[in-house]
Computed example of a mutant assay.
Amino acid sequence: MTAEGREAPYAPTPGTLVVDTGRADRLGEFRGVAGPYWSLRPVGGGPEWEAEPGAVRRATRAERLHAELERWNARSRGERL
């Protein structure tokens, strides 16, 4: 259940790209369920954050392609993700 008393949506598969609409449409990778929240990680790495499941949506095709391009660019610069 969410804080509003609604049933939480079905959790996506770990690694799925999602958008946290509760944080200015922040793109992240679904990592898992942490109590009543979902744990998300920035696509380029960094600290995970928790999101309300009801405020998370699947990333659009364009958002997924943009994230993949960012990963490839980081790899070409020798950055580890």
Rank of each mutant, 00 (worst) to 15 (best):
residue 27 L to G: 00
residue 44 G to P: 00
residue 58 R to F: 15
residue 17 L to Q: 06
residue 60 T to C: 12
residue 18 V to N: 00
residue 60 T to F: 12
residue 64 R to Y: 04
residue 9 P to Y: 14
residue 51 A to T: 07
residue 29 E to S: 06
residue 66 H to E: 04
residue 36 P to Q: 13
residue 63 E to M: 02
residue 56 V to W: 03
residue 40 L to C: 00
residue 5 G to R: 09
residue 33 V to M: 03
residue 12 P to C: 14
residue 17 L to N: 01
residue 62 A to D: 13
residue 56 V to M: 12
residue 64 R to N: 08
residue 39 S to V: 03
residue 55 A to D: 09
residue 41 R to H: 09
residue 67 A to Q: 04
residue 34 A to R: 14
residue 6 R to Q: 12
residue 29 E to N: 02
residue 1 M to F: 06
residue 38 W to D: 01
residue 3 A to K: 06
residue 41 R to S: 09
residue 55 A to M: 10
residue 41 R to T: 05
residue 20 D to M: 03
residue 52 E to P: 01
residue 40 L to F: 03
residue 38 W to F: 02
residue 52 E to S: 10
residue 42 P to N: 02
residue 12 P to E: 15
residue 30 F to S: 01
residue 24 A to V: 07
residue 15 G to A: 07
residue 15 G to V: 04
residue 11 A to I: 11
residue 28 G to Y: 03
residue 55 A to G: 08
residue 31 R to V: 15
residue 11 A to F: 10
residue 59 A to F: 10
residue 41 R to F: 04
residue 5 G to C: 08
residue 4 E to D: 13
residue 45 G to H: 07
residue 26 R to Y: 06
residue 34 A to I: 07
residue 11 A to W: 11
residue 49 W to R: 03
residue 32 G to Q: 10
residue 10 Y to P: 08
residue 12 P to F: 14
residue 41 R to Q: 11
residue 27 L to F: 03
residue 12 P to S: 15
residue 1 M to L: 09
residue 60 T to M: 12
residue 53 P to N: 06
residue 28 G to R: 00
residue 44 G to H: 05
residue 1 M to G: 06
residue 33 V to H: 01
residue 35 G to A: 05
residue 28 G to C: 10
residue 2 T to M: 07
residue 66 H to C: 01
residue 2 T to Q: 07
residue 20 D to E: 06
residue 36 P to V: 11
residue 31 R to F: 13
residue 14 P to C: 13
residue 42 P to R: 01
residue 16 T to F: 08
residue 64 R to C: 09
residue 21 T to A: 10
residue 23 R to Y: 08
residue 23 R to W: 07
residue 65 L to T: 12
residue 56 V to K: 02
residue 38 W to V: 00
residue 32 G to F: 09
residue 28 G to N: 08
residue 43 V to K: 03
residue 66 H to T: 02
residue 35 G to F: 04
residue 57 R to S: 14
residue 6 R to T: 10
residue 27 L to T: 02
residue 13 T to A: 14
residue 10 Y to L: 14
residue 17 L to W: 05
residue 34 A to C: 09
residue 55 A to I: 06
residue 16 T to E: 15
residue 52 E to G: 02
residue 65 L to G: 09
residue 59 A to P: 06
residue 65 L to Q: 12
residue 12 P to K: 14
residue 38 W to Y: 04
residue 48 E to Q: 08
residue 1 M to Y: 05
residue 16 T to I: 13
residue 26 R to T: 12
residue 64 R to Q: 14
residue 66 H to V: 03
